[in-house]
Write a protein that binds this DNA or RNA. Sequence first.
DNA 1: CCATAGATTGACT
DNA 2: GTCAATCTATGGA
Length: 200
Amino acid sequence: MGAPYPARRRLLRNFFARPTLEVAPDLLGHIIVVRTTRTLLAARLVEVEAYLGVGEDPASHAQRGETPRNLQMFETPGRLYVYFTYGMHHCMNVVCESEGRAGAVLLRAGEPLAGESLMARRRGRKGLDLANGPAKLCQALGIDRRHDGLDLVTGPVGIWPGTPPDAIERSSRVGIRQGTDLLFRFFDPSSPHISPGPPS
DNA sequence: CCATAGATTGACT
DNA sequence: GTCAATCTATGGA
């Protein structure tokens, strides 16, 4: 049996206030927790991608500097950066680096641990199709632009310590046209909850 | 299994 | 006007 959930206390500022490429793999195995008035939702992170700062990463929203949309990428580490895309989907990132320096980790997939019935209702799907993609994860957890800028250290959404995977693999990032040579996608190769699109 | 098309808003050039 | 850090349905091998 694993440790009871949730384990102790959530991750603190110092976890996020590091280089994005260090935080990204370290997030795997930790648990995102969303407190709603009625329900506790939780998912173990199994797939993430790093996006770097100004002039550092051609695929990053921050590549060309600060705009109203990507503002949170430049803000205090430990905040959420949530954006809307393809006219209908949301994706959520964890902000890294120090304030003023952009960097964020896209949360791409999770293994549901609590609140699965609510996730299934929101998704209209079951089983392995609840949170195995960045927009699916947001839909399952109820994350949208209202959550942009929320502080993971003090707010209703947090990340709690979990068990790191036995192994971590990396690959190029999914769905981008530039920066495909950079191996900034990190995932737990033993998890059936990683997103279906890319090869493993 | 794989490939492809369509959805549908808003941020940015 | 262009096109996106995606998902789903559908059609074919």
